[in-house]
Each structure stands twice: as C-alpha cells, then as structure tokens.
Design a protein around this nucleic acid. Structure first.
Lengths: 307, 307
DNA sequence: CCCGTTGATACCATATAGGTCATAACGGAG
DNA sequence: CTCCGTTATGACCTATATGGTATCAACGGG
C-alpha cells in the first residue's frame, strides 16, 4: 500500500547536481558553465566528478581543449532537462493550488438556494478565481451537515443555518416569507392578505424530522397569529410544495426567492402579520483553512455587505 | 540556443525534500515517516516546514492527532511520485548506457566484409550486448577513415587496414587471394593454376586513387611473378569485378571470402605463386573509450583468437 | 482532569558545498 | 618545442545545511 521510494543511493543525484550537469552539457566548457552558475570552476569539476562517481559512468569525454558528451551523458541530458522542467511545473502548480488561485472547491447547497442570490455569489467567486474547479451539488440541511463534517464537501449553503460549533459561518442573505396560492384562489383577488385570516386554509407543510425544522417555523407563525392550521405534510422541499399548491391542494409559506421561478397555476403574495423571514448561511469547517475556502468566505462577506 | 534552467529559488526543493515529503504524505504521521527514513522526527518536521516555506504553501493540515494532505499537498504528492520515478529511470538508463549494456554502436565496413566473418562477429557481439542498437553501413576505406575521424561512426572494419596513428586497431582475420574466372575459361579445367602462367590474361582491376590501393597489390603479385598484366581498371569493388568476370571481360584477383557468394558464369580457383593475402581490421578512434566500443574490440580480440 | 502522544522549538555537532589559491597534466597553436 | 588555455586536483577555510538530543506545548482519550 505504501509507496516505497527507491531507497538506492541515487539521492546524491539531486537537482543541484543535475542543474550543474546541464550547464556543462550545454556549454561544453567547465569555465563558462561555472560562470553561468555563479560558482567557481573547481567546485563545479568536483560536483560533476561526484555525479560521475555516483553513477559509475563517464558523462563527458575530456580532451583538454574540447569536451564532449558521451552517449550516457546524452541520455542523462535528456532526462535532466525533463526532470527540471517537471520540477518547475510541480513547483508552479503546487503554488497555484496552495494560493487558492487554482484547485477544487466542493459546494453543496439547499435546493431552494439555486434560484436566489447563490448563483450570483458563485458567479462572483468564479470571476475572481476562474481556475478553481467548482463541484456543485444540492442537498438538504441534514445532508449538508454530515457531508461537511465528513469533509465530502468544503462549503455548505444552508437555510437558514446549521447548528454546529465546528463550523465557520457567513450569512449570505435574509428574505421575508410569502404565500404561494393556487391561481384560482379567491385570496389572490384581495388587495392585502392578513395571515390571521388564513385559519381555515389547508397548509402544505414539510418534514418535521430534523428539529427545529422549517415546518416548525410555519407552525410557529400560525400559533402567533392565533390558530392551528389544517396541514398536509407531504412536501419534501419548496418546489414540491409549489407543485402541490398548483394543483389546488392548499397554500404554502415559502421564502420570497422561491417566487423567482413562476409556475403555471401558482401566484405569490406577501402577507401582513408576523414574518420571521428566513435566509441562507454559508458554512465551512473551522479547521478547513484551505485558501479556496477562505477566499469563498471572503467573497461571501463582501457580497453580503453589498446586498 | 542554450537551454536556460529556470533559475528560480526552487532549488531548495531537492530530491531529498521530495522524498521526505512523500514519506510523510504516505504515512500521514511524522514519527513513522521519520522512522521509515531513518532520521529523527525533529529534522523531518523542519524539512517539511522548509519545503512549505519555500513554496509558500501549506502542504498538510495539522491537527494534533491526525494530519491530512491539503489540496496543494495532493498535487505535490502526484508530482513528487512521478519525479522520483523518473529520476530513478534516468539513473538506471544512464548507468545502462554508461556500462555499455545499452546504447548505440555505429559500425561501418568495406562491402567485401559483408559475406565473411564480420556477420559472425557482429552476431557474437549482439549475443553479449543485445540491448545495444547497431547502426551498420558499408563504405570504402577512404570513407571509413574520414567517417571515423569525424566521429560519424564508432567502428570501421577496413580491408586490410587503415593507416592512421589516431586509431586503435584489432585484426579480425586474414585470408588468401584467389582467382575469379569466367566459367567458360579453359583455366577452369586445369588441375592447378600457376600465377606466372596468367601473363596473357586480361585482369579486372580497381581504382588506384588512395595509395596503396588494392590494385597495387595485384600489380605487385604480377610483377613478382614476372609480368605486367593487361588490365582493365573499371571495377569499383569486388562485386562489380565479379560481374565483369561473369560476362567474360577478364579474370580478377579477389579475397577468398568473396567466393562465398556464388555467381552464375563465375568460378573461383586458388593459384600457385606469390600470395600476400589480405585481411580485415577493426578500427576505432583512440580517444573513443565508450564502453560499447571497448566491448566490441574485446569481442573482436576473442573472436580473432578462436579463428 | 491527567497522561500520553505528537508535532514544534532550541541548541549543539557535524557534514557538505563552495571559495580561494596553487599546481599538475594535457592538447593545440604558433 | 614552447606557450597558452583548459581541466583536474589538492589544501585549507568558511558558511550553510542537516541531523541528533532534549524539551516543550497542545490536544485527545481514558
């Protein structure tokens, strides 16, 4: 399983030696090569001799006035060039990824964020860091939390927030709640809708499982407005809720941004009454200080201020 | 023209550092990695820290109980593996070529050698050094000499020898001269042919230009046998001479090995009389100590002794 | 809450690389 | 044949790098 480095003595052949060798191979003159390398000639001769001893191979044909590469020298020259080029590539690429200018960022978000400010935020991040490969996926809050903890994702955009001390948080936006009504509802004809008047309506609700759930929030509004609603808790998410509304099952309470996607048979209306609103929060693991993550949070912060 | 090595400070990233880094990246544990590398843990920590400083990049996420590669670390790990593998390949390949077990050997020979012992010699060399790529070509003595001097070839097989102090020599074989006769010649019916009886024959001769030439040798035999021959000096080489013999132009004096290739219209016969013989000699530049060359000469020496 | 483990730090010893100077060996040009 | 240029080599010094030992600090598990 573990990769065994060839533990041969070939460690004497380090990059410096190869660089020296290349210089001599190209100049075919120890003096000039040493000059180019900004070292004196004797140390250079010593290093080349050490390399030859290390390889037990003659790399140059030395006749006093003219040196020439041997076959082995030519072979090594090819390899040395490639090695140094690749070293440089490794150096640059690692720096790029390490600085956050390149690499990968895995972002997951609640489905209801896909039509609000999140796309704009992501676009903004991409404009700053176009070389970072974004891996986007949608999941619910519970999945976001476990995925973030298990490091399957780097960034979680949750609604409204994940309750975990291990996470760094950055608020992205807040928005009021509005009503989604079937377009044949007589409520749609009213100039304004008071929430307290909805006591006899059927409410499309949501899963209750991860408490506190969004369903709890809706029930809380009803309670504050003085009634307990007739509820159908069938919708897994806002889009399914809208679908149910469109076929006349009932009305739904949704974040304002959901209304950006119009759906035949559904109209959206603000309401008068208690409106706790909702919002999106960007999360990352506290211990994930990857520059891509820090940059994304930074962009989020600036972005949220501008809203 | 000269290849400029990226003179960046990335020389601090030498093979040793990469090896250390790989060990930590694979063990994900400084202590075990240090153990595997047979060094103490503190120096290893320092080397990794130096590498990170050099790259200005964090390579590991250190939480006390578990370290993890960062994205940049993963990128560097990939590159480091490849670099170390390629270094090892360069090391081994250079050694192979340097030891003479691999590489290239450029051999040129006089055309008349292509049907005698030379093929056997080459076969013998190949059996010892099958990985050496042989580049064979045919040329006359003069071309052999200039090609060897200009290093276009490594080995020259000449007939009988090249007169140059700069060459190392190894005799390959000697052989008597024989006569090539048209098959309708009445000489072919004789039990034995005395050279002195050939005074009235027409001799196919050869170019005289690089003195002493093979033509001179034939004329010398004639002189010693007491006559000056009627000569047609048209043949560039033995094969052309044989062709001329086959169409009845005259008779030719050729090395015995030429008779190995039978030609319709031509018969070969030994003769009585002065026979200086001829031979092949293997040459190489004195200053060419390439192991492939030394090995070839060695094989030649053993081969010639066995004959 | 304490202990053990683990990486980091401090300090010392040594090895290695490079500088400098001098010189020998060798080849080529005049 | 001698002089010049080039490389190899040795002696000696210095600075930097590298490794070892001892110790510390932080974090997690029992």
């Amino acid at each position: 399983m573990t990769y065994m480095v060839s533990t041969g003595g070939n460690m004497g052949m380090d990059f410096k030696r190869l660089k020296y060798f290349l210089a001599v191979a190209e100049e075919l003159h120890f003096g000039r090569a040493a000059n180019r390398l900004d070292i004196a000639q004797p140390p250079l001769s010593r290093q080349i001799a050490a390399l030859e001893a290390e390889l037990e191979v003659q790399l140059f044909d030395r006749s006093r006035s003219q040196i020439r590469l041997t076959q082995a020298g030519e072979v090594l020259q090819d390899h040395a060039r490639q090695l140094l080029e690749r070293l440089d590539a490794a150096y640059r690429e690692t720096k790029m990824v390490g600085s956050g200018a390149s690499g990968r960022l895995r972002i997951a978000f609640v489905g209801s964020a896909s039509h609000g400010v999140l796309p704009t935020l992501i676009k903004s991040y991409r404009s700053f860091y176009p070389e970072v490969e974004l891996q986007l996926s949608a999941m619910n809050n519970a999945e976001l939390q476990t995925a973030l903890i298990s490091r399957e994702i780097d960034i979680a955009v949750a609604r409204p927030v994940l309750d975990d001390e291990e996470f760094r948080r950055e608020p992205l936006c807040t928005e009021p709640l509005i009503l989604a009504l079937p377009d044949n509802s007589e409520l749609g004809t009213q100039l304004e809708i008071r929430f307290a008047d909805l006591a006899d309506q059927t409410f499309v609700l949501y899963p209750r499982k991860p408490r506190p759930s969004y369903a709890d929030k809706v029930l809380d509004i009803c309670a504050r407005e003085g009634f307990k609603p007739k509820a159908v808790d069938l919708a897994q998410d806002f889009q399914s809720a809208i679908s149910l509304v469109s076929v006349g099952v009932g009305i739904a309470v949704v974040p304002q941004s959901v209304s950006r996607t119009q759906r035949p048979g559904v109209i959206f209306r603000p309401y008068k009454g208690y409106n706790p609103g909702t919002g999106l929060t960007v999360h990352a693991r506290l211990d994930n200080r990857a520059p891509q993550v820090m940059h994304f949070l930074e962009v989020t912060r600036k972005f949220a201020r501008k809203q």
